[in-house]
């Protein structure tokens, strides 16, 4: 028996919106640690890793480890039927091939349940080592989303370059070129507005903007985004999920042939 209950159900709706465009089908892993997912996009250059720790839920019961294969577009369709203020419960009984999503309105006057078929998914699980990154940028997530959106009207790729001057995002295309420089800015009224750059070594990497734009679907989850980079390693773009975990996106850099 697996059951989780999340009073702030909108978080789960936002999580699904953050991953459904990148990944079609994925295995959710349920264990005593929490509710997690690791999935690659169909071209195998980007990976999303989600962790929602069991302590973050109002109720969490997982009698034995369980893998639930779900079509994310279908799961998102079901979660869209939950109101933003609804409490969401996810339930799966042992030995069944369905999962139930239950939505309760805050005043308990409307209770809906939606049953979805599970699927068998063959997926590769990658071991991601904890790495020391040469440069870590923390900045407002809305600012990062804006930069990715603006640069994608200029070119297909973004060059992210971290130096002691700050972080530069550059794109080039048929109509011209663009450079956006963000400097460290820790002296802000609200900590969520800060831009903090920790640099051990200058790093310059190139990435496909299509993926970066897809990652920014997680912007409603967190005020800040963390971008971790090292030479010739996949970038990690991380959004925290309200004290209960994270969504991390990994994207392989484009390498000069």
């Amino acid at each position: 028996m697996f059951e989780l209950r999340l009073v702030q159900g909108s978080l789960l709706k936002k999580v699904l919106e953050s991953i459904k465009d990148l990944v079609n089908d994925a295995n959710f892993d349920c264990s005593s640690t929490g509710f997690s997912l690791q999935a690659m996009d169909s071209s195998h250059v980007a990976l999303v890793a989600l962790l929602l720790r069991s302590e973050g839920f109002e109720h969490y019961r997982c009698d034995r480890n369980l893998t639930m294969g779900m079509n994310l577009a279908n799961m998102a369709k079901m979660l869209k039927c939950a109101g933003n203020d609804d409490i969401i419960t996810i339930k799966a009984d042992d030995g069944t091939d369905t999962v139930t999503f239950m939505f309760e309105s805050p005043s308990q006057d409307k209770i809906s349940d939606f049953e979805m078929k599970l699927m068998d998914i063959d997926s590769e699980h990658l071991g991601i080592p904890e790495a020391e990154y040469e440069a870590i940028i923390r900045m407002p997530s809305a600012e990062f989303a804006r930069i990715c959106r603006d640069l994608s009207s200029i070119g297909d790729t973004v060059v992210i370059s971290v130096t002691k001057e700050g972080v530069r995002f550059s794109a080039r295309g048929d109509i011209g070129a663009a450079n956006i420089v963000c400097r460290q800015n820790a002296t802000v009224d609200k900590p969520e507005d800060a831009t903090i750059i920790e640099m051990q070594e200058p790093v310059t990497l190139t990435f496909a903007l299509r993926y970066m734009n897809s990652f920014t679907k997680a912007t409603p989850l967190a005020e800040q985004v963390t971008i971790s980079m090292s030479s010739d390693l996949p970038v990690v773009v991380e959004y925290k999920v309200a004290g209960m975990g994270y969504i991390r996106y990994y994207l392989a850099p484009k390498i000069e042939e």
């Binding site: 071209s43 195998h44 990976l47 699980h125 990658l126 071991g127 190139t206 392989a252 484009k254 390498i255």
Partner: peptide, 14 residues
């Protein structure tokens, strides 16, 4: 020309 390598070249499969 820049190319993109799959993630499994960076992270081993478990």
């Amino acid at each position: 020309k820049r190319t993109q390598f799959p993630l499994r070249l960076y992270f081993a499969m478990t």
